[in-house]
Computed example of a mutant assay.
Amino acid sequence: MLGHTLWILDASQDFLVQIDLVGDRVVSTVPVPPSAIAAGDGRVLTISPVGLAGSAPPPLTLDRVDPATGTLRLVRDDLDAPPNIAVGLGSAWLAGNDTLVRVDPMTGQILADRSIPGALTAAVACGKLWIQALGPGGASLDQIDPGTGRVIWQTAVPEGTLAPQAAAGACWLLEGDGRIAKLEPGAGIVNRTPPIGMTVQVAGDAFWETTWDGQLRKVDPTSGQPGGPTWQLPKADLPSNPKFADWRLIGLDGDTWLLDATGVVKLGFGSAG
């Protein structure tokens, strides 16, 4: 999401689709190679190719999406860096096995190359830089000083934990065991709920769980208790469907949107907490 615009990489990963949620229209369809996409600082960046087999992957290409023309603008086509990308704090962050690379998103210049143990993914959230690392001892979440690459704070997390997210004036983790954890940057986790549903998502300032019969219902992020409106997912999105995970909720200007393989639907309740 950037402003009122939603960017979607289609299922075939051949096109990047720009949707204006307020105007209810597709703004542009951008052909892309197999890519990873990230948005932040008012920019949308893609990095490619991704998902290629082989022991010696080719150099990566970093492109910037021009939302006005619906085209890709080449930033650099010879990056020797990992393919996982995050954008924010004035930089693009490329993470992979034991490596975190900081790149200027306008010129492609490598600003720093840090060694951090583990299979890494990067995220920028709550105004901070985070690394999720998976190693022999399990998974961890690290808060990183973007200037020095120093680990400020670290904690073990269940595998499958999502990147931190800002909502309702705080920073949160959706953990791999179905819990919601509240984060205090620089201090750590200050609260955890009991395990909740099979899927938990954040839309705007509200938290939603999915039940086994396909209902979306709002939950309190501090207690994990359900309350408020519910929504029955369409039959195609029920757990019996192999593509059950192919949907997500989006909050924008107090509204809640459901995105699935068939389109984007505005739901009849708000996204306030």
Rank of each mutant, 00 (worst) to 15 (best):
E175K: 03
T121F: 10
A181C: 06
E159K: 10
E159Y: 10
L52C: 04
L258D: 03
T61Y: 04
A166W: 04
R64E: 11
T69F: 08
L89I: 02
P185H: 02
I110N: 11
I116Y: 04
D177H: 06
G54M: 08
D145R: 03
V44P: 13
N84D: 13
P185M: 06
P33K: 12
S91E: 10
G227T: 02
V32H: 06
I131F: 13
L162N: 09
T148H: 11
A245W: 12
G147D: 11
V22E: 15
L134T: 13
D78T: 00
V200G: 03
P58S: 15
G23K: 02
T161H: 06
I116S: 03
V44C: 08
D20E: 10
A122Q: 03
R150F: 05
L100R: 01
A236V: 11
L62P: 12
N191C: 02
G42E: 10
S48E: 11
A206M: 02
V65H: 14
N241A: 14
V65P: 13
A123P: 08
P229L: 04
L258C: 03
L258K: 06
S223R: 08
P239F: 00
A81G: 15
Q215R: 15
L16M: 06
A112Q: 05
G204W: 00
L89G: 03
D24E: 14
T121K: 11
L6D: 04
T99L: 12
A86D: 04
P234R: 04
P229N: 01
S28T: 14
F15K: 14
T71Q: 09
L74Y: 09
A181M: 08
A39T: 14
C171Y: 03
I19P: 05
D66Q: 09
T99D: 05
A187N: 15
A125V: 02
A206Y: 05
V103Q: 04
G135V: 10
S240N: 15
Q143F: 01
T107E: 12
R217M: 08
P136T: 14
P105D: 10
K266C: 09
L9C: 05
I116G: 03
R217L: 11
D253Y: 09
M1G: 09
L233G: 07
P57N: 05
V264R: 07
W247P: 02
L120G: 02
S35F: 01
A156D: 15
L267R: 01
L259Q: 01
G149H: 07
E209F: 13
P185R: 00
L238G: 13
P146M: 07
K218T: 12
A206I: 04
R76W: 06
P34G: 03
G42H: 06
M106S: 12
A133S: 09
L52W: 00
G40Y: 00
L9S: 10
P57G: 07
L79G: 11
D80A: 15
G188Y: 05
A167H: 06
I152V: 14
N84S: 08
G54K: 09
W7F: 11
T71F: 01
T29L: 09
L62R: 01
A53T: 15
D63V: 08
S223W: 10
